[in-house]
């Protein structure tokens, strides 16, 4: 791949039904590029968890996936309330999600830990009242 490929998505925060749409599309796009099934799975699961988080906690946001020669980078940017305590949020089982979200099969406090587990690099920048930006990379 000589040029960097970029896929951009607007994640709708108003409708939980559509949560995960962008990740399904990313998976399709990555399959067309002939990457290994394992890399595609790791990228798409990490993005899926991040996308669901943006819908649950931040009212949506912007997602960007960059494919370069060495790695695939996922950037999730939202204007949500921010994460109060990132160390706590990274702990398995810690969640601030509502019962409604839990009844939909999410909000078990596994999202951020899963994102870290499936990626080779993950950075979270978050400011209360301003938003959260997460950058993740999966090596090809």
């Amino acid at each position: 791949m000589s040029e960097e490929l970029v896929f951009r998505f607007k994640v709708d925060g108003d409708d939980f039904t559509s949560a995960g749409q962008a990740s399904v599309q990313v998976k399709k796009n990555l399959r067309q590029l002939g990457l290994s099934a394992e890399v595609i799975k790791r990228v798409s699961v990490a993005m899926y968890e991040g996308e669901i988080n943006m819908v649950i906690h931040a009212g949506g946001g912007d997602a960007e996936v960059r494919v370069s020669e060495d790695y695939i980078e996922i950037v999730l940017d939202d204007k949500g309330p921010g994460i109060k305590n990132i160390d706590l949020a990274m702990q398995e089982g810690y969640s601030t999600a509502s019962d409604t979200i839990r009844s939909l099969g999410f909000g078990a406090g596994m999202g951020l830990p899963n994102m870290r587990k499936y990626t080779d690099y993950m950075d979270i920048q978050s400011e209360i009242g301003v938003g959260t930006k997460i950058v993740m990379r999966v090596n090809c």
């Binding site: 995960g20 968890e49 099969g105 999410f106």
Partner: peptide, 30 residues
């Protein structure tokens, strides 16, 4: 619990669930 399904990368090829929403399908796709 879809978060649990997503947590274990064990190459499981079938999902049994009582949860009904589009995220069940998307989780299986992922």
């Amino acid at each position: 619990l879809m978060s649990d399904v997503l947590a274990y990368n064990k190459d499981q090829s079938m999902l049994l669930t009582g949860l009904v929403n589009p995220q069940v399908i998307r989780t299986a796709v992922m």
